[in-house]
Computed example of a mutant assay.
Amino acid sequence: MDFLRLNDKSVLVIGVANRKSVAWQTAQVLSESGANVLYSVRSEERAATVRKLAGDVPVFVCDFEDPESIAKLGKEVAAETDQLHGIVHSIAFADYSAGWLPFHQTPRPAFLQAVDISCYSLIATAETFRELLEPEQGSVVTISISTTRMAAENYGYMAPVKAALDSTVCFLAKSFSDFSNVRFNAVCPGLLKTSASAGIPGYVDSYLFAEQATLRKRAVQTDEVANTAAFLLSPRSSGINAQGLVIDAGMSINYFDRQIVSPDS
C-alpha cells in the first residue's frame, strides 16, 4: 500500500554526508515508498560515497556558497526530471576552528558563513526550483533543531542561525502562497548521533544528558527524524505548512525529571 502517495514522485535530497546522516535516512524512506530520489552533495568525494550507497542514481555536486553552482544545479536537475514533488534541505555548517569561545566573541566571518550555508541556502534552493516544484502538492522540508531558545554554550552561534532558518520557513511558505500551494516545513530533532554533530565541542556529554532527559530514557534516532521528513513531503501532510515539528522524545517537558534532579535519591 502506497500510504505516503510518493510512488514515482521525484524528490531532491540535498546534503547527504554518509549513511548516518538524516538526509540519507530520509532518502531511504523515500526510496522504499517508490519515490525517485535525486541527490545533491557538496563535493565529488561525497558524490562517490552516495553512489556507493545508492547505486546508479542521479548525484549532483553543488557548493551552496557559490550562486553559479546553485544555478548549475537547477539546470542539471531540470534536465533529469520535468517536475519535483519535494526537496529535502539538510545543509548546515559551522566553523569551530577557533575553538570554544563565549557567544559574545563569535567571529563575524564564521557567523556569516554559517548563515549563508545553513539558512540562506534554503532561500536560494526555493528560488532555483520555483518553476520545477509541483505547484499543488510540492513540499520542501528542512532540518532544524528542537529548540533555539536553550542557550547551550557548546552549540554557540548555530542556535541563532537555526532560529533564522525556522523563520525563513515561515516567510517562504507565505511568499510561495501567492502563486502556489507548495508547502515549507522543518523537522526539529533533539540531539542525534551524526557525523555533523561530532564536530560540536562537548557534544557527547550533551547527548548523554539529553538522552536521560527524554521520557523514554532513549535518545532520538535518525530514522525517526527521517520518517517525519518523509511524511511532511507526502500529500498525507497536506494541511501542515510553515511549521516546525519537534522530535525530541518528550525532552522539552522533562527538565525536572527526578532521576536527573536527584540521581542519588
Rank of each mutant, 00 (worst) to 15 (best):
L6R: 09
H85E: 09
D223I: 15
G199D: 10
C62R: 04
H104K: 15
P235Q: 12
M158R: 04
Q243G: 03
A114H: 05
D56Q: 12
L73K: 01
L30W: 08
D8G: 09
P235G: 11
P189C: 10
I87W: 02
G199Q: 10
K174A: 14
F64L: 09
V115I: 15
A151K: 01
A17Q: 09
K20C: 12
D82F: 01
I200R: 00
D248Y: 00
V115F: 15
N154R: 02
P135W: 06
F209H: 10
A48D: 13
D205H: 09
N241G: 07
D63M: 08
T26H: 12
S234I: 06
A78G: 01
A198Y: 02
S10Y: 07
G202T: 04
F3D: 02
R236Q: 12
S139E: 08
T147N: 02
V261K: 10
Y207V: 04
V204D: 14
L233W: 08
E153D: 14
E76K: 06
D166H: 04
N36A: 15
N154Q: 08
I200T: 08
V13A: 11
E136I: 06
L172I: 14
A71Q: 05
V187H: 09
S234K: 07
A78E: 02
V11A: 12
A27W: 09
Q113C: 03
L233P: 08
R149Y: 00
N241T: 12
Q243F: 03
Q105R: 12
R218I: 13
S195H: 08
Y155W: 12
V225F: 11
V246M: 08
S195P: 05
A229F: 07
R130P: 09
Y155S: 03
P201R: 00
D63I: 07
K20L: 15
Q221Y: 13
V57F: 09
D257P: 02
P107L: 06
D264W: 14
A54I: 07
G202P: 04
V13E: 11
E127Y: 11
A152W: 05
D66L: 01
L232H: 03
I91H: 05
L122H: 03
R130N: 14
A164K: 00
V182Q: 03
S177E: 13
S195L: 12
A163P: 01
A54Y: 06
A98L: 06
G99L: 04
E45A: 13
Y157V: 00
A226F: 09
S69Y: 02
D205G: 05
V169L: 07
G86V: 01
V41I: 05
G244H: 09
V225T: 13
L4H: 04
G74W: 03
D205M: 10
E224K: 05
L53W: 03
D178K: 14
N254L: 14
K162E: 00
D63Q: 06
V225M: 12
L101E: 11
R19C: 07
V115L: 15
V169A: 08
G239D: 13
G138F: 05
R46C: 03
K217D: 13
A186E: 07
S167E: 11
S177K: 11
